[in-house]
Amino acid sequence: MVKAAFKVRHITQRYLRPPGALKEKDFIGRCIRCNQCAEICPNNCIKFFGSENGADSMGTPYITPREKACILCMKCGDVCPTGAIKPIKRELEPIVQYVEMGKARVDEQLCLSYQGKSCGVCYRACPLADTAIKVGYMEQPTVLDACVGCGLCERSCIQIPQAIKVIPNHLLASQLKATHLKERRSGDNDVQIIKFK
């Protein structure tokens, strides 16, 4: 009971963990809150939780892509002493294979290119253009499987609210879990599922 209460998360915003981070539960246990990942981040995008994500997440690093997205420089993994962020080589194949921050998703109701107004800004912002995202007629974006969830697309979207969002990995996995669970255990406050259109 105490454990469950301790783990309650009040997710008021989607957040991403740094690239190469372990799965959420393991990450919280492994991170020693040394702040070195933010120190070394040349993009200044890593911030730290206070109490807003639960007491167990306090002091852990996170990224809000709409404010500042990750440029996949992969330095945080090099500096993390505990391996909470795994070191990953800054090359296309390792990044695509091992970085699992989340997956971008296009809201076609909001996206300008799907409304007949060619935009294509998210495609141009993507560091893995044509691998993680491609554009078609009138610059309409389609997210591909290789998307690692860095969030640069979300940051650059000129629509308000943004038409492309990164669904964080910890919500993706549990969304899959939720669809497979027939019934949910009562009192399991582990993760709140947030519905996206």
Partner: peptide, 17 residues
Amino acid sequence: MKRIKIDRRDFIKSSAF
């Protein structure tokens, strides 16, 4: 325990300088 945040300008090396 809230953090008192003072706004800063930030500099990025990504989507738009």
